[in-house]
Structure formats: structure tokens, C-alpha cells
């Protein structure tokens, strides 16, 4: 129980995937303009990350590792994730149209989100067991969502601010992200566990 709590705090606060590991910056800058789209994207990412781990971990442990093919993991994982996302899209469309309407637009964008591939690779690198890997993916997805939600609040303020012309748009967004990142750095002094 204690390790799970530690894992959660580490994933969400000290090692936040967006603000300190720099994965998934594209959706972080692109989708975080409105709270509703941040929530939609976040939910889709949590879902896909957890499912991608459930699918890729057995492939790695049962197929690649026994056959000494671990160097193929990048190819195998990205292919599985790409196929899986398409599959999820088709199934959701048929079975749960309301959920599809809520997440639909964000699902295909996730295939090329480096955070998803990054998490599955890091679970393997850290030597996590299957259960811990899945939990870690959910926590990392939550961290991504938290960063997106926090930042959508910051951005809605920037929209109305009077910024010098050269800094309008992406530069000011990046500098705001830098300040949000400073606040997350404060957690790194925390002694966990």
C-alpha cells in the first residue's frame, strides 16, 4: 500500500510527465486552451495509457524477452499502440456512442503522443511488475491531466493579458509553462517513502 502511494506521489507531483519529463508537450500546448478539451484529452490519455500497458507488457514479457528480441520493442510497441487506438475507436463508436463523442476527436491524436510510448517503455526500464505497471500508467495519465487542467486555467488568463507583440502566442505560453514548472519543482524536495 505504501509503495503504491509513493508511486502515485512520484508520478503526479515530483516526476510530472509533462512538466519535468517533457513528454506529451504537443497536446500540452495544443489542447490546453479550454478546460473542457483538457478534460477530454486527459481522460482519453488515462484510458489509452492504461490499456496500452495492459497490451504491451505481456507482449514484452511473453514474446520478446524469451526470444531475445528485446531490441524490437520500439517497433512492436508503437505498432501495438497504433493498432490498439484504431480498434478502441471502432469499438467505442459501435458500443458506446456517448463516450465516443466525448473522446472521439482526441483518440487518434494519442497514437503519436510520445507520453504513451514513453510510459510503456519506462515501465519496462524500471522493471515494474504487471500490476504496478498498469497502476503507474494510470497515475502518469492523471499527472498529464492535472498538468493540462492547471495550465488551461493559466492560459485563459494569458488570453486577456497585454503582451508585447513578439511574445504573443506560443512564446508567452512557453514562458507561462516555465513558471508552472517552477511550482512543480518545489515538490522535488519532498522526501517520499
Amino acid at each position: 500500500m505504501k509503495t503504491i502511494f509513493t508511486l502515485m506521489l512520484t508520478a503526479i507531483l515530483t516526476d510530472n510527465i509533462v512538466l519535468s519529463k517533457f513528454m506529451g508537450i504537443c497536446p500540452f500546448l495544443g489542447v490546453s486552451k479550454k478546460l473542457s478539451s483538457s478534460l477530454g484529452m486527459g481522460a482519453a490519455v488515462i484510458f489509452v495509457m492504461a490499456c496500452a500497458t495492459v497490451v504491451t507488457y505481456p507482449v514484452y514479457a511473453l514474446i520478446l524477452e524469451p526470444n531475445n528480441l528485446t531490441y524490437l520493442r520500439t517497433v512492436a510497441f508503437i505498432l501495438i499502440i497504433a493498432l490498439f487506438v484504431q480498434l478502441v475507436e471502432i469499438i467505442l463508436k459501435k458500443i458506446m456512442p456517448p463516450l465516443y463523442n466525448a473522446l472521439g476527436v482526441y483518440l487518434p491524436l494519442i497514437t503519436t503522443n510520445c507520453a504513451v510510448l514513453g510510459v510503456t517503455l519506462q515501465n519496462i526500464d524500471n522493471g515494474f511488475s504487471f500490476g504496478i505497471s498498469v497502476l503507474n500508467s494510470v497515475f502518469v495519465g492523471m499527472a498529464f491531466t492535472l498538468a493540462l487542467i492547471l495550465f488551461s486555467g493559466v492560459r485563459s488568463r494569458i488570453e486577456n493579458a497585454d503582451i508585447p507583440d513578439t511574445f504573443k502566442g506560443v512564446p508567452s505560453t512557453l514562458i507561462a509553462a516555465s513558471i508552472v514548472s517552477v511550482s512543480f519543482m518545489a515538490f522535488s524536495g519532498m522526501q517520499i517513502g
Binding site: L19, S20, F22, T166, F167, V170, P171, S172, T173, L174, I175, A177, S178, I179, S181, V182, F184, M185
Partner: peptide
């Protein structure tokens, strides 16, 4: 040392993009 840590990355990139625009 903040410049080699994560906030520095966002900050320098933002400033360089602004400079390029200028």
C-alpha cells in the same frame, strides 16, 4: 542552475522563438 532544469527549458525555448519572430 535553473536553466539546465526543466523550467529553464521552457523559458529559453519561449525566448528563442520570440527572438526568431522578431
Amino acid at each position: 542552475s535553473i536553466f539546465v532544469m526543466s523550467p529553464g527549458g521552457f523559458f529559453v525555448l519561449g525566448c528563442i522563438i520570440a527572438l526568431v519572430n522578431k
